[in-house]
Amino acid sequence: MKKKNFMIAIIVFIVGAGIFALINQPTATFNNKTISQHDDTGTKTKENEENEDVGEESQDETEEDEPSTEQRQLSTVAIEAFQEAVDFFTNQNTHIVAVGDSLTQGVGSSNGGGYVGILDSALNAEGQIVSFDNFGIRGNRSDQLLERLDNPEVSTALEDADIVLITIGANDIMKVVRENFTNLKIEEFRQERIDYEERLQQIFTKLKHINPNTDIYLLGFYNPFEQYFQDIEELDMIVESWNKTGNDIAQEDASITFIPTVDLFDDPDANLFAEDNFHPNDRGYQRMARRVLDYLTNEEG
């Protein structure tokens, strides 16, 4: 038991130090079975026109060392993968609004656009067919997003949104870590998940009040520590339970769709994370973009 507690303490210290050093909003690790989750959310950014290589995931992972490859025009594979979506959105004047945390902002990607920027570049490569507004803010929790929906700039964009994309909740988890850093127990996450569920319901209610006709897509969590702490089952338990919360809410409302992402990053042989080891890199965001597009075209069609 002493040995186990000692190992846990070491993991907590290492992960905690790494998070606080690498991310603006504090992050830390999970004691009782360490967890450290990436700070989510970023400064409000309109998506840059990033020419990201959204295909070629089977190529060498050395692409991460060749940013020029990631930033040049879409590859043939990418064009083929997105062609159906381009055809789908053409002549629809679709407006997509993204809100949430650092995953929405695109923290970790080479040009800061993330998955939203990749969607923008891919869909509008041959001409503007979909307009995007990105209101991702690094470090945002669900309570902060709930308040930001009242911001006139955000609410005005939402009033005209055909589709709303959301990433939120990772910083709710990190709040538990920060407040209980020296005595972290899984029970603390269970209670916070209940509070998160209530706030998530309020976010959806407010979104539908602002725009009753929009379709809402909630992206799920992934576990960035799977590759390092595979033997700590509690990490997966937390991610699974919080994902289930979002999915359960979505199942109750036809206008809300849950998009899973945990499987996209369950690939120890692929380099999917940025240098901070928490946020996705270009390749990770490419996977997210293709998954989102999959759901958009299937659901909308």
Rank of each mutant, 00 (worst) to 15 (best):
E49A: 13
E64M: 15
E52L: 06
E56N: 10
Q59S: 08
R72K: 09
S68A: 11
G55L: 02
E49W: 07
R72I: 01
E61A: 09
K44Q: 01
N48F: 14
E49T: 01
E57N: 04
Q71W: 12
N48R: 03
R72N: 08
Q71F: 07
N48E: 10
T69H: 11
E49F: 13
E66N: 14
S58C: 02
E70L: 14
E64L: 11
T62D: 12
Q71L: 15
E47I: 05
K46W: 01
R72C: 02
V54I: 07
G55T: 01
E57I: 01
G55C: 02
V54P: 06
S58M: 08
E66Y: 10
E66Q: 13
S68C: 03
T62Q: 04
D53Y: 07
V54S: 14
E61W: 05
S68D: 08
E63D: 13
E50V: 03
E50P: 03
V54R: 06
S58E: 12
Q71D: 13
E61Y: 15
G42N: 03
K46L: 07
D65W: 07
G42Y: 01
G55R: 07
E57F: 02
D65F: 13
E57R: 07
E49H: 13
E66I: 07
D53E: 13
R72L: 02
S58R: 04
N48L: 14
P67F: 03
E70M: 08
K46S: 10
E52C: 04
E52T: 01
T43A: 05
Q71P: 00
E50G: 12
N51T: 11
Q59E: 05
S68G: 12
D65H: 14
E61I: 09
E47T: 05
N51E: 12
R72Q: 13
E66M: 09
T62P: 00
E70W: 15
D53A: 11
Q71T: 06
T45H: 10
E64K: 15
N48W: 09
P67Y: 02
E66R: 06
Q59M: 03
E64Y: 15
E49M: 10
S68N: 09
E63Q: 11
K46I: 08
E49R: 02
E63G: 06
D65T: 03
Q71I: 09
E56S: 05
K46T: 04
V54N: 13
Q59Y: 14
E66G: 05
